[in-house]
Design a protein around this nucleic acid. Structure first.
Lengths: 214, 214
DNA sequence: TAGATTGTTAATCGATTAACAATC
DNA sequence: TAGATTGTTAATCGATTAACAATC
């Protein structure tokens, strides 16, 4: 009875990822069962919302008891697509790129860094973690001989669009864009681009913090 | 005619921050005027939405012409609160924390890193950028003698709640939480906590990329 | 003026939540 | 059974968008 994935609201997808993170914590601390109210409390949400979100998974709880943590984890991963491994490349090995490459959280959720690219000759050949930085020119060849699922784009703003287009052209289906400018997918490609900006997160927080006048 | 800030929808705030980023790019390339349609196209939005968002600013465009880039930048910054400088501390100087400390985008938007804290004795006294890492125990004293507006929390999951409570107790009004677990503000404090998780961004992208079955 | 684009309304669409029957 | 919690409905709330009068 799983809902077609397509119908799952974006907002629900985001919350499911947060539920997953909490559930994994709970599992590590030995918890086997959980109630919607408890998930809601941990995340500052409404328990109706949690139940409704979970109902998109197909997985069902037990009335009077709750949900099995393990089952919930598995079905969220199935819906998000993280029940399998994802091969990710890093494009742009500046300060941010280097930091992202070492971020443990990616691997923990099944995202494996399999390549690192830069266009700066001074960087090519040096290493980032266990990877050797390759010339961006080698991306097409690399993508042909390796399955690349996602690209993390962390180049300067003025290079972002051009590099994104190159990534698109080699057929990589998703780009997580950390460059501080929006990039567009060409209308002909199926590449999905998602924007992330850490400064924007701070700005949203700043807005919430400023005492509201009126 | 500015709307009371409180009434500006969360979704609008986020988009305003994205507009700001694009507008700053445009300004750098010498553009003085812009139309809602052009902003919308760059960001993949509807132009009605852009105009409606902008109408929350109070600032008005010129019918038949568009908006003045500089004016728009200023009024978005005023609404977001980034028309002034924000003093930010980093709590937790691991890999991610260290990377965040060097992130140029923060400073560009008026966020200044003024302190770095960790509880690991091996790190205390060493430097991150131009700052010396201090013991977390010194936070109360530091907060008393310096105005601290926001804290970036980048500690391991198991320490996050306890450290967040300490930050709260010294009266810092906002926490950007990069720890991979939700933390709660005590009901008595006014501290606002915003969650960010880079792995969750990848998961959202993964969901969008997986071919939708029905 | 003629052409263009804003500002805003009204309609639509989607997301949240209270409430409660179903049921473990 | 009695107590608890789910699953789901219906109502509410909020956000998006098409359309167009206002006006530069």
């Amino acid at each position: 009875m799983t809902k077609p994935r397509q119908q799952i609201p974006k907002a629900t997808v985001t919350r499911l990822a947060f539920y997953l993170r909490e559930l994994q914590q709970m599992q590590r601390s030995g918890l086997a069962n959980i109630q919607s109210r408890s998930i809601a409390e941990r995340l500052g949400l409404n328990d109706s919302q949690v139940r409704r979100d979970i109902s998109c998974l197909g997985t069902v709880g037990q009335r009077g008891v709750g949900y099995r943590v393990e089952e919930l984890i598995e079905s969220i991963q199935r819906v998000l697509g993280t029940d399998r491994n994802w091969n990710v490349i890093l494009v742009g090995v500046g300060n941010l790129g280097r930091a992202l490459s070492g971020y443990r959280g990616f691997q923990q959720q099944g995202f494996q860094l399999v390549g690192a690219f830069d266009s700066d000759p001074a960087k090519i050949g040096s290493s980032v973690g266990s990877l050797t930085i390759q010339s961006l020119d080698r991306l097409p060849e690399f993508a042909r001989s390796n399955q690349v699922d996602l690209a993390i784009l962390a180049v300067p703003a003025d290079a972002a669009q051009s590099v994104a287009s190159q990534i698109e052209r080699v057929g990589i289906p998703g780009i997580l864009n950390f460059a501080p400018i929006a990039v567009q997918a060409s209308s002909s490609s199926r590449t999905i681009i998602q924007e992330v900006d850490l400064a924007i997160e701070l700005q949203r927080l700043a807005f919430s913090v400023v005492p509201k006048s009126n």
